[in-house]
């Protein structure tokens, strides 16, 4: 079992993911610099939080064209498991692996706090350790997490059971309280909250452990 963690200039949660996966769960981790193209031997890829390329233009807009992400798209299309956290979720929407977009929080607030979320695992392979309707607490830390999509896109997500996480108390104005989405096949998951920061009891909360532990089968 090995995961790749994408590192862009400006990523800042790459080492958090490494600590959660390797330090807390013993999952071997390899960093993937944004210019790399070799994903051989990896069972999953994580796109971590941060400010890829300084969030210039739009969050995730430039990351979308990184060589490593061309490979990640192929990896996902072949059924590989991909997890995008925070900026990683923004990247997944820019690249089209998940629909919609993340925009500036309402009232312009940067929100940084523990957030209660309801989980709807559906067919998402990352979430099989959670039960339907379970409430978990993951930290959030973002200024641009307000989910927006066309009405028919949102309806299709709802009908397909793809809204994997919802905020119990909407902190940013997201449509339908969306905090995280999975794709139709359930192998790609994107969410604004940080499960990797909820894996170590020493830093408060372990609700995120089961998400990464799903890789251990």
């Amino acid at each position: 079992m090995a995961i790749g963690v994408v590192v862009f200039p400006g990523s800042n949660c790459d080492r958090d993911v490494q600590w959660a996966a390797e330090g807390c769960l013993g999952i071997q981790t390899r960093f993937l610099w944004h210019e790399e193209r070799d994903l051989s031997g990896l069972d999953a890829v994580v796109i971590p939080g941060g400010f890829s390329y300084g969030d210039y233009l739009r969050c995730g807009a430039i990351a979308r064209f990184a060589p490593v992400l061309q490979e990640v798209v192929q990896f996902a299309e072949q059924g590989g498991r991909v997890l995008g956290i925070c900026n990683g979720f923004q990247v997944l929407t820019e690249i089209g692996l998940l629909p919609g977009a993340l925009t500036r929080n309402h009232k312009l607030h940067f929100v940084c706090e523990p957030a209660e979320l309801t989980v709807e695992p559906g067919g998402c392979s990352w979430l099989q350790g959670y039960s339907s309707g379970e409430v978990v607490t993951f930290p959030i830390a973002h200024g641009e997490g307000r989910y927006q999509a066309e009405a028919d896109t949102l309806k299709s997500l709802e009908d397909g059971g793809q809204v994997a996480f919802r905020y119990c108390r909407n902190p940013n104005g997201s449509m339908a309280d969306v905090a995280g989405l999975t794709n139709r096949n359930g192998n790609v998951l994107g969410l604004m909250p940080h499960p990797e920061r909820a894996c170590d009891a020493a830093t408060g909360g372990v609700d995120g452990r089961r998400l990464l532990a799903s890789l251990l089968g």
Binding site: L57, A61, F65, T93, E94, A101, T103, Q148, A149
Partner: peptide, 8 residues
């Protein structure tokens, strides 16, 4: 494809 995101 790059300068604007037509979704938003």
């Amino acid at each position: 494809r790059l300068l604007a995101n037509p979704v938003i």
